[in-house]
């Protein structure tokens, strides 16, 4: 069981609701993934356009909602977004994300730390999305974040674990859960993250952008379970030289 801020999760696969071609596929994929924590965003209502109510079907699915602060360009906007989300979703959980640069969506570490500290003081359960920076993750832990969410590669890029060696340091040092977020492109990436000892992964684009999101969601579920089980079982030693697993020449002894 994974525990974040006194909430227990039996699934270590977190997911998002973005980029699905329609809401039926999204709900089917979320169901297939077995996820128990799902992200959503907050947006100003377009009064000229009617939008579907996302929350009702997600409530029916029984998942916990994790609103994000996507779109915030600085700490002040992120705090505002978190307060809106708290009102809208009746939750004090927030995925804090501040990315002023629209091209690479790199999270702003300075604004994230400032906003995280302020939100913790306001009583929020803060899960900050950050670069794979072990020092920053440590600072975020110190100001009271409930978990850290370092990126594997740029958001939505499906490039996989480009930051692997830094994620390894974060996992080793962190005393709060580490959720690998962003850029996980295929189930083997998710499995590798879990084998490294990550507490959970957050996968959205890789599922939503698959031609078949529902089977892909199931594959991610299995990959996360397998990766976690492998981590718990422990790995054999890596060596540079070959080390035979069968007798090499014994069966020839005595012949000639």
């Amino acid at each position: 069981m994974l525990t974040i801020a006194n909430h227990q999760f039996s699934s270590r696969l977190f997911s998002g609701t973005g980029k699905f071609s329609n809401s039926v596929t999204m709900l089917d994929a979320l169901r297939a993934s077995g996820t128990e924590l799902v992200t959503l965003a907050v947006k100003r209502v377009d009064l000229k356009q009617r939008t579907d109510n996302l929350m009702k079907p997600l409530d029916d699915l029984g998942v916990k909602l994790l609103p994000n602060t996507s779109g915030a360009r600085n700490g002040k906007e992120a705090i505002f977004a978190a307060q809106l989300a708290q009102e809208m979703f009746a939750t004090n959980w927030v995925k804090l994300e501040i990315h002023p640069d629209p091209k690479y969506l790199m999270p702003d570490p300075v604004e994230t730390l400032i906003a995280a500290e302020a939100l913790v003081k306001l009583g929020f359960v803060v899960l900050p999305y950050v670069h794979a920076d072990p020092v920053l993750c440590h600072r975020l832990e110190e100001v009271g974040c409930a978990a850290v969410m370092p990126l594997a590669s740029p958001i939505g890029s499906n490039q996989g674990l480009l930051t692997k060696e830094f994620l390894r340091i974060i996992i080793e040092q962190s005393r709060v859960p580490v959720v690998i977020d962003a850029g996980i492109g295929c189930p083997s990436d998710a499995s590798a993250a879990m084998e490294m000892g990550a507490d959970a992964v957050l996968v959205n684009t890789a599922i939503a952008s698959s031609p078949q999101p529902v089977p892909m969601a199931k594959c991610f579920q299995q990959a996360v379970i397998t990766g976690r089980a492998a981590y718990q079982a422990g790995f054999g030693q890596v060596s540079c030289q070959a080390n035979h697993t069968s007798p090499l020449t014994g069966f020839l002894n005595g012949l000639s």
Binding site: L40, V45, T51, M55, L84
Partner: peptide, 10 residues
């Protein structure tokens, strides 16, 4: 007065 609602996001 600004009104906000939930939208899909990751």
């Amino acid at each position: 007065i600004d009104l906000f609602n939930a939208v899909a996001g990751g």
